[in-house]
C-alpha cells in the first residue's frame, strides 16, 4: 500500500510540474502572440522596403499579395507569395521569392523585386547555407555584390551576359567562390524570364484583374487579399 502511495505522489508531482511548465509557456505565448506577429510583419516590410523604397508606393504591401504556383523558373516546389506595390492604383513593382537550387551548399532563397517596366528593383538573399567568409558575401549586410543587380533587365543584358565574369558574363564572382554567385545570377535571370512570361498575372491591368486570374490556371485567385480588403 505504502509503495502505491509513493508511486502516486511521484506521478502527481511530475504531472504538476508538467502542468506548471505548459501553463508558463502557454501564458507567455498568449501574451506575446500579437507583438511577435507585428514584429515579424515589420521585419518583412523592412526587408521589402530595401528592395522597393517605401516612398515609391502607397498601398499596404503586406495586404496586396498574390499566391504563385510552384514554377521551374522560380525554383519553387510549393506555392509562394508575391507582394505588389502600387501608387495611386497604378502598378509600381512586384516582389516575389525565387530559389537558386544549385548553391555550393544547398539552395539559396532570394527575394526578387521587379519594376513594371522589367527593370530589377533589387535582389536580397533571405536564407542560404553558403560557406561563411566566402559564399556569404551574397548577403547585403556583408558585401555590396547583391546590389549589382539593381537596374538590370532582360533588355539591357543579353542571355550571354547574364552570367558571372568567369563564364563570359557581366557579374563579378568572389575570390574563392564562383559557384555561389553563379547560382544567384542564374536564379535572378530565371526570375526575370518568369516575370516576362507572367507579367499579366503579376501586374495585371487594374480593371481586368479578375479575368486575368481566371485565364491562368497556375495562379490561385482566392489569395488576392487586396481585393477582399477593398470590398
Amino acid at each position: 500500500m505504502n509503495i502505491h502511495k509513493q508511486v502516486a505522489t511521484t506521478a502527481l508531482l511530475l504531472m504538476l510540474f508538467a502542468v506548471i511548465g505548459a501553463a508558463l509557456v502557454g501564458f507567455i505565448y498568449d501574451r506575446t502572440y500579437d507583438t511577435i506577429k507585428k514584429n515579424e510583419e515589420l521585419t518583412l516590410l523592412r526587408e521589402l522596403n530595401h528592395i522597393v523604397p517605401a516612398s515609391s508606393y502607397d498601398n499596404d504591401l503586406l495586404a496586396s499579395t498574390l499566391e504563385l504556383a510552384a514554377d521551374q523558373n522560380l525554383g519553387t516546389t510549393e506555392t509562394s507569395i508575391a507582394y505588389r506595390a502600387k501608387k495611386q492604383g497604378k502598378n509600381v513593382a512586384v516582389v516575389f521569392s525565387a530559389i537558386a537550387p544549385n548553391g555550393y551548399n544547398g539552395s539559396i532563397h532570394l527575394l526578387v523585386g521587379i519594376y513594371h517596366d522589367g527593370n530589377l528593383a533589387g535582389v536580397r538573399v533571405v536564407k542560404h547555407r553558403e560557406t561563411p567568409g566566402l559564399g556569404d558575401a551574397i548577403e547585403a549586410k556583408r558585401s555590396d555584390w547583391i546590389l549589382s543587380f539593381t537596374g538590370k533587365s532582360l533588355d539591357k543584358l543579353t542571355d550571354k551576359q547574364w552570367k558571372v565574369k568567369r563564364d563570359g558574363g557581366e557579374f563579378d564572382q568572389f575570390t574563392g567562390a564562383t559557384i555561389t554567385p553563379r547560382a544567384v545570377v542564374k536564379a535572378v535571370h530565371a526570375a526575370l524570364i518568369y516575370f516576362k512570361a507572367n507579367k499579366k498575372i503579376l501586374l495585371p491591368d487594374d480593371d481586368k484583374n479578375k479575368e486575368n486570374y481566371e485565364q491562368h490556371s497556375d495562379i490561385n485567385p482566392g489569395s488576392d487579399t487586396e481585393g477582399q480588403r477593398s470590398e
Partner: peptide, 29 residues
C-alpha cells in the same frame, strides 16, 4: 523527489528556454 528530479528539471529548462525565446521575440525583436 529524487526519482523524478531529472524529468522535472528537463521540463523546467525546456519551459524557460521557450519562454525566453518568445519573450525576446516579442519585446527585444
Amino acid at each position: 523527489r529524487p526519482e523524478v528530479r531529472i524529468p522535472i528539471f528537463v521540463l523546467i529548462i525546456a519551459s524557460i528556454v521557450t519562454a525566453i525565446e518568445l519573450a525576446m521575440n516579442a519585446w527585444f525583436h
